[in-house]
Nucleic acid binder design. Structure first.
Lengths: 190, 190
DNA sequence: TGCCCCAATGTTAGTGGCTAACATTTGGTG
DNA sequence: CACCAAATGTTAGCCACTAACATTGGGGCA
């Protein structure tokens, strides 16, 4: 019996993800086969697809998206849509430099260098985008404007994230992301 | 001898694209095989891939992207980056309602309803994004801010385009896209 | 403890996107 | 008309991904 609360499912999934990230880092995304990942994790390739819908989902599933929508919801109302979204996202950035995010950085670094995965990174934010838009709509913003504002802000954030990973400066991630938001809501306009 | 200046290559390509769009509209993107498209156009499946790198490229290649960057370059300098990009894009919208864009609308309509193609639509703007960013950099904007501004604006425009296609209102496309830009550069903020 | 049930996994076979290598045709040119 | 090169066809194969069915293993209940 396991003392840790990790079920078999969670263990298998974690093993697959670990194997995948290691192999992707070592020999590249394209050169790595799902078959190979599965073998490395001690399972069959079918098990892989039972835990991840596609090969790129191993890299793209971040799942810290609901927290973002919550932060936007907590931001003060009454602001113009884009300003409101930026304010919420800025608040969420507080938690982004914490340790334990190293695995996220590995994932983003793999994605940043690969055209298909870069595209997938944007696609992966669509759920978050919709969640943020709903928050705005609940405050009386039109659905159209809500979607535009959240899409623009998330695109800015995603580009900033990818660029930050490619040029691994020592500037903290949060300040880079904050600068991206400044471009949007005019804090940077003298 | 052909009086028209269409080379064999152009004719084959056009035939493939026409066949693809017709089949996609009739029976859906997923249910249509490249094999089928090729047969319909009277060629083999290899010829398809010699003209389009991937299956989705038939839907996603618009190629009216360089004009957009030119319009941004023509916009007045000295504005904050995002304002500048929006001004340029607004100018480009003048030409967007012209007739003959019907085929573009067919393509976007197909893309709008399909998750993978929606994602691809964003990815397809990356070249334009980079072109706009270069224009800004040439005017002294930092590469980082330039990329953020152009990514945000194009994301807004792309979302507006997709939404406009899904809810085929009788509101003209240009006014919808213009409204999206308003959300970004504050024209809408009283 | 021991049994049993079901969820997790394995096996196998197949489809379709995409590529490489090589053979073949076609169209324009000297 | 003959020739060269570009466009196309053929074939074979890899890999992501799926369906259908068999198998196993582990946790709960008697």
């Amino acid at each position: 019996m396991m003392v840790t609360s990790t079920s078999r499912t969670e263990r298998t999934r974690a093993g697959l993800q670990a194997a995948a990230l290691r192999l992707f880092s070592e020999q590249g995304y394209d050169a790595t086969t799902v078959e190979q990942i599965a073998r490395e994790a001690g399972v069959s390739h079918m098990t892989f697809f039972r835990h991840f819908p596609t090969k790129d989902a191993v890299v793209l599933d971040d799942g810290f998206d609901p927290a973002i929508a919550a932060a936007v919801a907590a931001a003060p109302t009454g602001l113009p849509p884009l300003t409101r979204v930026c304010a919420g996202l800025r608040a969420a950035l507080t938690h982004v430099d914490l340790p334990g995010q190293e695995e996220v950085r590995v994932r983003v670094r793999i994605a940043a260098g690969h055209p298909v995965l870069r595209a997938g990174t944007f696609a992966a934010t669509e759920a978050t985008q919709e969640a943020i838009a709903e928050v705005l709509v609940a405050d009386g913003v039109s659905p159209f404007e809500a979607r535009i504002a959240s899409a623009a802000a998330l695109a800015a954030l995603t580009v900033a994230l990818l660029e930050w990973c490619l040029s691994d400066q020592d500037v903290p991630m949060s300040s880079r992301l904050g600068a991206a938001l400044d471009v949007l809501d005019g804090t940077a306009r003298r």
